[in-house]
Amino acid sequence: MNKKRMLRAFAAGLIIFAAYLAYLHGSNMSYYASFIVYICLFLIAGQGWNLLGGYIGEISFGHAVFFGIGAYTLALPSGYGIDIPIPVTLVLSMLISGLFALAISYPLLRIRGLNFLVGTFGLGVVFLNVFKSSKQLFANKGVFVPFVSPQVLYPLIVGVTIITVIFVTYLVNSNLGLSFRAVRDVPEAAEMIGINLYKTKTQALVIGAMITSLAGFLYALYSMHVSPNATFDPAISNDILLGSYIGGCGTVLGPVIGGAVIIIIQETARSAITITGGHNLVLGIMLVVVMMTMKEGIWVTIQKLVDKLGKKKGSSSGKKLPKEKTEVIR
């Protein structure tokens, strides 16, 4: 398929899907529209987290910070009565998030592994408490965001989701993406081929932060209200991370599958289990089951299974075995 055809197919798919969401929104099935929107948001945030966590191997427990920055960049001006066009705030939210990631990269990316994880977790807690207690930031009551019509909102959410997946697919297969994977596989050997570890990790963090802020921005637009608990809560970092883990870290489709699984399980469990926090219990059990049976996540396990079946089929029919290859779509 050539580029023009792909673009046309992409545009057609986008319009149909967005129209379907708008239809769901207008009908008595708006619940399903919201369901799909949240899957899209987690998918975008998951792609952002995955660049650093999956492709570089540094597990961040604080990506809610970038999610929150994205949401508050849209909400704060409206809270102060300043009218800024949405496209401008969209670019601003990515820029602020990227610049903030660049600033924190200096202390945070000098540490590795568990220390990095604890550092990012601490950052998330600091942001949550600052936004909860600061009156200038509207504290716990949060800020209302102006209404955007579903005819604009749904194509925007679906379009950004698709563009994010396409961009990440392109990025991880580029030379920069290969450098990410080299740093994760063997950092010492990566240095021996001229890769600057700090700079490469910073690039992954900054690009990932910008993508995650997009999810926060779209969340603010969709929910029309932003509060610290809904954006900076470590539970959001947790869900972003779990999506990639359950789906498969270091793959593009992992966070797509993981994001969908998390939202489906959370929402189903929420309506099925009436005790407070019961949905988290189900999610926890789900994580344990996935980690025990599919350590590399659902997507990688499926890929390996398909590969295995292909080999078996080849050998039983007496045909030449397919070329040994377990490469997953990255």
């Binding site: 030379n175 290969l178 450098s179 994977r181 080299a182 994760r184 596989d185 063997v186 010492e188 050997a189 990566a190 081929i193 001229g194 890769i195 270091g250 490469e327």
Partner: peptide
């Protein structure tokens, strides 16, 4: 210590690009 998640071709490409 090759980059095990990559193919030999990708190992070469990433070194050439850096």
């Amino acid at each position: 210590v090759p980059f095990e998640s990559m193919t030999p071709l990708e190992n070469i490409k990433v070194a050439r690009a850096n």
